[in-house]
Amino acid sequence: MKTKALNRWLIRAGVTLIFLFLLAPILITVVISFSADNILKFPPTGWSFKWYATLFANRDFKGAFQVSLMVAGGASLLAAAVSIPAAMAIARGKFRGKTAVESFFLAPLLVPAIVVGLGLLLVFSPLGLKGTYQGLILANAGLVIPYVIRTTLLSLTTMDARCEEAAQTLGAPPLTVFRTVTLPLIIPGVLSGVVLAFLLTFDEAVVSLFLVSSRVRTLPIAMFDYVQTRTDPQLAAVSTLLIVLSLVIVVVIERIIGLRRVLT
């Protein structure tokens, strides 16, 4: 009994240390955001909210935040519009090459982001899409479509197919079955994928680095440019607000649809 108790204690201690190791950068960033120092320094020599006040007065960061918000929202909605019919075809369709179609939609997960970014730069530049909202939305939608497809497929494969069969038996046309039966049942998976896509797009930097311009910059790129010339805690304040924003979105969606249940 003593040996088992010791083993449980060691496992819990090990898991706790791993979590602390993973969370340490986040906790340090939050602490530094309240620093009174003029440089990134841990531990701070004093405490202040001045970097948050400076942040809210920073037009570059505010403009970049608006760009990221629009790009993330547009890319998430576009990814959902593509992923729902694609997932339906993969889950319900019976045709040759279905595995190849699924692999095609999941391919962005296998290609390094820097390779994707360079390829998109070569394609988008002649089309005039570099440095535009449209180009950033298209690029990021392509990156997050696999995630929305996976969560939608999970909902499609775990839902009760008898509901669809009952509606078809009663004479409902396919579009009506999808609108009144299938979509309400898979909406938790779709929304989970959209939320995940939004957060990933909002945080994306590698591909966006190839496609932004001086007028259209996302927040991660603005932060990257900022840190090349300055090293004050304003970056920590931005990062802290992004952490809070991500937590709020995840908690709200978890309360509404049960995000954890869908993703697991």
Results as ranks from 00 to 15, higher is better:
M1I: 00
T3E: 00
A5C: 10
R8W: 03
W9G: 14
W9T: 13
A13L: 09
L17C: 10
F19H: 12
L23R: 15
I28T: 13
V30P: 15
S33W: 05
S48P: 15
F49K: 10
W51A: 01
A53N: 15
S68T: 15
G73D: 12
L78W: 06
A81V: 14
I84F: 04
P85C: 00
A89R: 14
A89Q: 13
V101E: 10
V111Q: 07
V111I: 08
G117T: 12
L118F: 04
L121M: 08
G128R: 05
T132C: 03
Y133Q: 07
G135V: 08
A139T: 13
G142H: 08
V144K: 07
I145N: 09
I145D: 12
V148T: 13
T152Y: 04
L153M: 14
S155Q: 00
M159D: 14
D160W: 05
E164W: 00
E165A: 03
E165D: 12
A166F: 09
Q168C: 00
Q168R: 03
T169L: 02
P173G: 00
P174Y: 00
V177C: 03
P184C: 06
V194F: 01
A197D: 12
F198Y: 09
L200M: 03
F202A: 10
A205L: 04
V206F: 02
L209Q: 13
F210G: 11
S214C: 09
S214I: 06
L219P: 15
F224P: 15
D225L: 06
Y226M: 05
Q228E: 00
R230F: 07
D232P: 03
L235D: 01
L247Y: 02
V250G: 11
I253E: 13
R255W: 01
I256F: 12
V262L: 06
